[in-house]
């Protein structure tokens, strides 16, 4: 094991050692972040449910829509927005350790290839919070369903929609995943280039890009009109473009990380 550790190629064992070290060294901080995710999901669910079920009771929808869960859609929309927000925040903190000279030295001098150190941080600060968020949503929503089923005359519906019901859902989920990957890699790139206030800087760039995009659409929107008649092609093009952006941004951030100096 010890002789292997100095090999110059990518080693899974060393990647695991880096992950373990990063998690155990920052256990307190990571624990707080995870608790915050659970807390935000829980509070959002409670607020949305109380609002949705109150409206439902007041408007006496019982006889009209007994099989329609009034909280499902608002929760789904809220969780999509919250998920994107959490992914963006987490990704913008990926390379926060590069903010200080001491952090940079610690990071760059650890024994490992640049790829191992890069993926350690991306997995811990980019991928893990997203997966943890998804798991929290599933568990908390499952509890909501059980509680609602037992105390209300309504069949609660699980917020995570079954993707295998029809092709449209699969497509929607694929598009959402590629969009999330795109957002995550964008904020990761901002974090490598400018670790200080990466989230705020990322948001500013998005606002600027959106303004530019809106102006472009307003001015040259006509050129997109033919896509209206080829929705399937438009969908696959959008999916391809988003995935390509995510891949390109990930490669760019890796190269920048590799070239980082003090």
């Amino acid at each position: 094991m010890r002789n292997n550790i100095t090999q110059d190629k990518f080693l899974w064992s060393r990647l695991w050692m880096h992950i373990k070290r990063e998690i155990l060294s920052n256990m307190k901080q990571i624990r707080w972040q995870l608790a915050l995710i659970v807390g935000v999901v829980l509070i959002s669910e409670i607020l949305i449910c109380s609002n949705a079920y109150d409206n439902w009771k007041q408007n006496d929808y019982f006889y009209n829509s007994a099989f329609q869960d009034p909280a499902q859609l608002p929760i789904l929309l809220a969780m999509v927005a919250l998920g994107l927000f959490i992914v963006a925040i987490a990704a913008s903190m990926t390379f926060s350790s590069l903010r200080t000279k001491a952090g940079k030295i610690n990071q760059l001098m650890s024994v490992g290839t640049s790829a191992e150190k890069f993926w350690t941080r991306v997995l811990i600060y980019g991928v893990a919070p997203a997966l943890f968020f998804l798991t929290s949503v599933c568990i908390i929503d499952l509890i909501r369903c059980v509680l609602v089923d037992s105390i209300m005359p309504i069949k609660a519906q699980f917020v995570i929609i079954n993707p295998f019901i029809d092709e449209t859902r699969v497509k929607a989920i694929l598009l959402f995943c590629s969009f999330t990957a795109c957002v995550s890699s964008f904020f990761t790139t901002v974090s490598v280039y400018s670790p200080k206030h990466a989230f705020l800087k990322g948001v500013c760039i998005i606002i600027a890009l959106q303004t530019l995009g809106s102006w472009f659409l307003f001015r040259y929107g006509n050129i997109l009109r033919p896509w209206e008649y080829h929705l399937d092609l438009a969908y696959w093009t959008a999916l391809g473009v988003l995935t390509a952006i995510a891949v390109v941004l990930s490669v760019v951030s890796y190269i920048k990380y590799k070239e980082t100096e003090l």
């Binding site: 060393r14 155990l24 610690n106 024994v111 290839t113």
Partner: peptide
């Protein structure tokens, strides 16, 4: 190049450094 084989042979104690809360 910051190759692992080199990094494992060099240790730097900078003037300012951080240690984790463990």
């Amino acid at each position: 190049l910051r190759l692992p084989s080199i990094l494992s042979k060099i240790f730097i104690v900078p003037e300012e450094f951080t240690l984790p809360a463990i």
